[in-house]
Amino acid sequence: MSQVRPNTSAYVQRFSKVFEYIDAHLDDDLSVESLSQLANFSKFHFHRQFSAYTGISVFKYVQLMRLRRASLRLAFHQADRILDIALDARFESPEAFARAFKRTFGQTPSAFRRKPEWHAWSACFVFPNLARKPIMNVKIVDFPETRVAALEHRGHIGHLNETVRVFIDWRQQTGLSPVQASRTFGIPYSNPDTTPPDEFRFDVCGEVAALVLDNPQGVRNKIIPAGRCAVVRHLGSPDRIGETIYPLYRDWLPKSGKELRDFPLFFHYLSVYPETPEHAWQTDVYLPLK
């Protein structure tokens, strides 16, 4: 039986095209026939190659991506009815949606909406062979001092989305939403791949013009300092941002001759989360330099 060799660039390019198409067309009829034509495989070989490459079938992958989008709506759009979310995910009934949702994430849609188990949720989207090689178009910029409201996350990265949801609620209550041109940042103080889960630290931040008052959510005043930075744009889900970070440190930095400043790498999220479709998310990665 023919097997995919994940490091073969031709396969990577063909499958990357398929994944990007799926991300952009979750509302469409994503049949094996149409996707196999896009990848330039026969229907028979495409089904086998896709399963070998991802570890699951085409149907299950498409359903998983639709459930992912539905889960984000459940968590971040409390006013949306579960019935509407189920139908938009192309399920025939709320019951069929609930069964698939619980089978995938271990929670019913209503339980997930009340208290998402983000750790288990994130584990559903680990596909080791799907790493995509970014084009490293690095620029050097002078980043101005920026005052931010920051909510500190401490603990497993799988629970970071819960911190994000608390921050979004605070932001909406105060009127500091992204639609009012308040930039959104993220500051990781440690690498989740090498840090013990309970020691992982990350700040979810929003730009502010005035001091943040005491609040029950624990949002605090912080400063992103001015200074020179290398910046590169990451395209796609922030869940895969390591695919941009590692080449920046591993390949670009040694060749550049630059030295790092004593401030963590940080992210500027250019897309509105979670309204922007995943394939269209853009994130600027800033590496502070001396």
Score class of each variant (00 low, 15 high):
Lys255Met: 12
Phe266Asp: 01
Tyr269Met: 12
Leu253Thr: 11
Leu270Gln: 13
Leu265Lys: 08
Leu260Gln: 11
Ser256Val: 04
Pro264Phe: 06
Leu265Ala: 13
Leu248Met: 14
Gly242Val: 06
Tyr269Arg: 11
Glu243Pro: 00
Leu265His: 12
Tyr246Asn: 12
Pro247Cys: 07
Trp252Phe: 14
Glu259Ile: 05
Phe263Ala: 08
Thr244Pro: 03
Phe266Cys: 08
Tyr246Phe: 13
Asp251Thr: 14
Arg240Leu: 12
Leu270Tyr: 01
Leu248Gln: 09
Gly242His: 04
Phe266Lys: 00
Tyr246Trp: 12
Thr244Gln: 03
Thr244Met: 03
Leu260Ile: 07
Leu248Gly: 09
Arg240Trp: 06
Pro264Trp: 06
Pro264Ala: 02
Leu270Gly: 02
Lys255Arg: 14
Ile241Cys: 02
Glu259Tyr: 05
Ile245Lys: 04
Pro264Thr: 00
Arg240Gln: 09
Glu259Asn: 13
Lys258Glu: 14
Pro254Gly: 03
Leu260Ser: 06
Tyr269Phe: 15
Phe267Trp: 12
Pro264Gly: 04
Tyr246Ala: 13
Arg250His: 15
Arg250Val: 07
Arg250Gln: 14
Leu265Gln: 14
Arg240Gly: 02
His268Val: 01
Ile245Leu: 02
Leu260His: 01
Arg261Pro: 12
Lys255Gly: 12
Tyr249Leu: 14
Arg261Ser: 15
Phe263Lys: 11
Tyr246Thr: 15
Asp262Ile: 01
Ser256Ile: 04
His268Asn: 09
Gly257Lys: 10
Tyr249Phe: 15
Arg250Trp: 12
Ser256Asp: 07
Tyr249Ser: 05
Tyr269Val: 09
Phe263Pro: 10
Pro247His: 07
Tyr269Gln: 11
Lys255Ser: 14
Arg261Trp: 10
Lys258Phe: 12
Arg261Asp: 15
Arg250Pro: 02
Phe266Thr: 03
Thr244Trp: 06
Trp252Glu: 05
Glu243Lys: 00
Arg240Lys: 11
Asp262Ala: 15
Asp262Thr: 13
Tyr246His: 15
Pro254Ile: 00
Tyr249Ile: 12
Gly257Leu: 09
Arg250Asp: 15
Asp251Ala: 12
His268Ile: 00
Arg250Leu: 14
Thr244Cys: 06
Phe266Asn: 04
Arg250Ile: 04
Phe266His: 08
Tyr246Ile: 14
Arg250Phe: 14
Ile241Glu: 04
Gly257Ser: 08
Leu248Ala: 06
Ser256Cys: 03
Phe266Ala: 03
Lys258Leu: 14
Thr244Phe: 02
Phe263Gln: 13
Lys255Thr: 13
Arg240Tyr: 13
Ile245Tyr: 02
Leu260Tyr: 03
Asp262His: 13
Leu253Glu: 07
Ser256Trp: 02
Ser256Tyr: 06
Gly257Asn: 10
Arg261Gln: 14
Lys255Gln: 15
Pro247Asp: 07
Asp251Asn: 12
Gly257His: 05
Ser256Phe: 02
Phe266Tyr: 06
Pro247Lys: 13
Arg240His: 10
Lys255Ala: 15
Pro264Gln: 02
